[in-house]
């Protein structure tokens, strides 16, 4: 069960009218290493992972939904007032033809989100290594978007999101350590 807090995890402020940036941000919305993939991947893996790391997957999976909401806000703000002409100039003509100003779970190239983006092998080490890789890939994606964006306010939120990827990766690495060493457990042979 979840409780919803009616505010964003970190404020999202957009200063420049730049629909083209929205096209790139969609990668983090419905892309393979985006926030939707992350949330669903972790929350789904919880059931078949040792008890000690279930809570971690719940917490991080939940936070990914908070990130998803931030990305959605950015995309919405960047495109909501764009004319069809501006959408076309920003490379969002195909998006406009299909969705008007609605958001859609797709990547920056327009491929719709697919469950094949997430893995659930059932092997705790394999799944956690997958999660670590996903966090590093999301961190890199944020770097590439920051490199292309010159909106200081938007970059501020993106830098926050990037730092969270670093922390999540760290916690998944610690989860692997816990499972590797079975900390505090007496072993009898």
């Amino acid at each position: 069960m979840w409780f919803y807090e009616k505010k964003l995890q970190y404020p999202v402020k957009v200063t420049e009218c730049n629909p083209r940036l929205a096209k790139y941000l969609i990668e983090q919305y419905g892309g393979a290493d985006g926030e939707l993939s992350a949330a669903l991947r972790y929350l789904n893996q919880r059931y078949t992972i040792p008890d000690k790391v279930i809570g971690l997957l719940t917490d991080i999976g939940t936070e990914e939904f908070a990130h998803l909401e931030m990305i959605a806000t950015m995309i919405y703000k960047l495109t909501k007032d764009a004319t069809p002409e501006q959408m076309k100039e920003a490379g969002l003509g195909a998006h406009y033809a299909n969705h008007d100003h609605a958001l859609y779970y797709q990547n920056a190239a327009g491929s719709p989100w697919t469950a094949t983006y997430i893995a659930a092998k059932g092997d705790p080490i394999a799944d956690l290594y997958e999660d670590i890789a996903a966090e590093e890939k999301a961190r890199a994606t944020y770097q590439w978007i920051i490199n292309m964006s010159d909106d200081p306010c938007l970059n501020d939120s993106l830098k926050f999101l990037r730092e969270r990827e670093v922390i999540h990766s760290q916690r998944f690495r610690e989860a692997v350590e816990i499972l590797k060493f079975e900390k505090d457990r007496k072993q009898f042979f």
Partner: peptide, 26 residues
């Protein structure tokens, strides 16, 4: 990034003040 090198995070490390931590993301 530093998470590549830290290993299992030791106890009682230095912390940012709360406001700053919320801003920085950690």
């Amino acid at each position: 990034p530093p998470n590549l090198y830290l290993g299992f995070q030791p106890m009682n490390l230095q912390q940012y003040p709360l406001q700053e931590a919320l801003y920085k993301g950690t």
